[in-house]
Nucleic acid binder design. Structure first.
Lengths: 235, 235
DNA sequence: CGTATTTTTGAAGCGATTCAATGGACGTGG
DNA sequence: CCACGTCCATTGAATCGCTTCAAAAATACG
């Protein structure tokens, strides 16, 4: 277990604006953890240990229902935290954090993190703002799941992913994640089949380009039109 | 704007275990607000002002989509807080808090609340634990909306409401809220019609008793069986 | 007692799922 | 480098759960 250099922490939203002393203290309490592609930082149901901030790689948060159905909660890219809810509420991890590629994260023991927040109130307030913004995401997704049709939900999911992990590329924005149709289905509450059908349609219309675990948004505007249920723009 | 007596605050989870001095300071920063049945503490889209804890009455948190569809986010009973997310994340209120009966709440200005949390770290940690547990609720509801059928979702919604506002009564547990079929539909992501049909069926089976804005759970066990998709118990 | 709101019920239709089977991409080992 | 096995993606056809719309019944309220 090595410790991250305090300078590395500055890059992360959660620790931004902290003074050097605070960063050193935060870094001193951290541990570094490396995980292979396919392995998990933590698994749903095991007792809560750490809160993490991803430094390298990508991860996927999933939840499985008692009867084995899986839901993708969100994807994590470097700089984002995961396991916050668990480390604050205690109990067991409510979800699984799996590395999609070789990944590395800094972790803090629940108690250590609480101690740090007590010592650095600004850290506490940032954590709460982070939690609050995640709450909004969830509220929005809830509303979407409750009121919108699959097509719009998938369009929205793609746009969100593009915002989070999109990279500009010749002819569009590529979603820089190993994103299968299955993932997309579990993210938007539908089935692989429906996702496949819709993406095929969009590809034929030139709105997206697809490949195995690969999606490029060629006409973001048209995708927004679908997400917002606007009349499709004429070309 | 009167101020609540500090003794009154003790009853609330959020302020439990605070010492007398802290309670006095918290009470001093509070304002009391009374609202008529049907009126709102705040409306979705208006700039964030206060975080509230309900002291009397019932309230309902709703969100409307851009195209006018409404979703019920949750019901609030005395002792529960609302507007937390907004007061921490800032910006506009993401939802509307409407009183279902004459209601009263203690409120704290966003800045004041942050100040109190800085001064009383235990309050901050409780707030975070509260946020975290709300997060879990949302995650769960998300998963349900994504994977379960309407019947199970409604059964779950009823059980949750019974846990929150249930009162024992001859022949079952009554949900002590003015709960319309419409509310239940907007809470579980379906239509009034489907809710009405299912409740009629359950009533015929003796699982629930219904009335206008009134629901009594007569056989909680059977409702759990539906929620968990177990084989129905034989009688 | 009349009006407004809430609830129920029926019939028709569709969006999305389910299941089965095929097709294509990738990586690995010979 | 090709051949194989595995995983991922596609497509079609059948089905069903739920919604939609229309209309009537029940309940509460002034």
């Amino acid at each position: 277990m090595t410790r991250p250099a305090s300078e590395l922490l500055e890059k992360f939203d959660l620790f931004a604006d902290r003074d050097a002393g605070a960063l050193v203290a935060i870094a001193a309490a951290a541990l570094t953890r490396r995980v292979e592609a396919g392995d998990a930082f933590f698994v749903q149901g095991e007792p809560t240990a750490c809160f993490y901030v991803l430094s390298k790689g990508r991860a996927r948060l999933t939840q499985v229902t008692p009867d084995g159905q899986q839901v993708v909660v969100r994807f994590i890219t470097p700089g984002e935290g995961f396991g916050i809810v668990a480390s604050l509420a205690g109990g067991d991890y409510p979800l699984t954090a799996e590395a999609l590629e070789p990944a590395e994260a800094y972790g803090w023991d629940g108690e250590a993190f609480k101690g740090l927040m007590a010592a650095h109130p600004e850290l506490a307030s940032r954590s709460m703002a982070l939690l609050a913004s995640r709450m909004r995401e969830f509220q929005d997704r809830n509303r979407e799941l409750a009121t919108e049709r699959v097509e719009r939900r998938i369009a929205r999911a793609l746009l969100r992913l593009a915002g989070q992990s999109g990279v500009r590329e010749s002819g569009g924005v590529r979603i820089d994640l190993p994103l299968s149709r299955q993932d997309l289905a579990e993210l938007s509450g539908t089935t692989v089949f429906t996702v496949s059908r819709l993406l095929s349609g969009w590809e034929a219309a030139g709105i997206v380009g697809t490949g195995r675990k690969r999606i490029v948004i060629r006409r973001p505007h048209d995708l927004v039109a679908i997400a917002e249920d606007l009349p499709p723009a004429t070309h």
